[in-house]
Design a binder for these strands. Sequence first.
DNA 1: CGCATATTGTTAATCAGGTAAACAGTTTTG
DNA 2: CAAAACTGTTTACCTGATTAACAATATGCG
Lengths: 160, 160
Amino acid sequence: MAPRALAKQTNAEMPDVVSDLEILIGYNMKRAYVAIQKDFRAALGEGGLSPRTFSALSLVVAHPNISQSSLARLLGIERSGLVAIIDELERRNYLTRSHVPGDRRVQALVATHEGNAAYQATLATVQAHEERLLATLSATEKHTLMQILIKIRLTDKEDI
Amino acid sequence: MAPRALAKQTNAEMPDVVSDLEILIGYNMKRAYVAIQKDFRAALGEGGLSPRTFSALSLVVAHPNISQSSLARLLGIERSGLVAIIDELERRNYLTRSHVPGDRRVQALVATHEGNAAYQATLATVQAHEERLLATLSATEKHTLMQILIKIRLTDKEDI
DNA sequence: CGCATATTGTTAATCAGGTAAACAGTTTTG
DNA sequence: CAAAACTGTTTACCTGATTAACAATATGCG
């Protein structure tokens, strides 16, 4: 088995077998996610929400009065990491931190009218981006993919 | 539709519907990848290779004498970002940068004997980690998943 | 009651992974 | 031969995330 010669031109190398990476699900999942994320950001444009900020807003809209601790847990990140995300959403006037009567530690998060509107518009854009990007997948494939992704998520005992 | 009351106890909140995120493939793909990556690192332990360093080593083993530019392209990252990865592999004595006769710019990457051995051992560990983590998936599901991930990868025109 | 323990939001330091821009040295091309 | 292109590299920077500490507040229990 002779060693492959050094390819000088990038377009001259289209190897039949790239490496063992080809059969590793983790590697291909990362590459697929990077492709999705890139398209997500392109779809939302320059001043758009980042994936994580969009996710946080989505959960606040779905769970009015949620605390930051609970939200961090749903997102699977640390409380400390959430602060900057909520700061941004507050700066955009998409939500408010409001003190709750019973407990002076927590600050209930509530989406503003503007935040709700921006969320609905962004959600539509995100759904359009996924439909366009994943147009080559059949409805069955998308459904199967979701089922599998959720199964994998749940192997992490910290998830949800 | 009354707003949900603020849940004070984390274990008291197990909402039937979390948010629209539930039906977004991008979000679930990220969560699934995070789970896989976490298990990958746990499987390889403290002094183990990171996913990206393992990937780079895999490609060097599969493509002896590859240049850093070509390798970066295969990995889908910038040349500049690869330098630190190759530095680490060289520090571990897993590969060598050797000058090639024809072109004094490029440095051909070649895995050492030690690097090959470490790679084979690590690959076995990684495969065991995936088999264990994805034990709930049938062979058909794994196969379908790989096909779909590759389809999604290829929506990125920069890929491969 | 009072004290230990726990929780909430926050800051600060740090890390991993990655990009973009510039650069010197070296081909390649018109 | 001059202009353009390519290679590896450094530097500065960015995003996303973690850990450790902290003050304020709440809860549990003897």
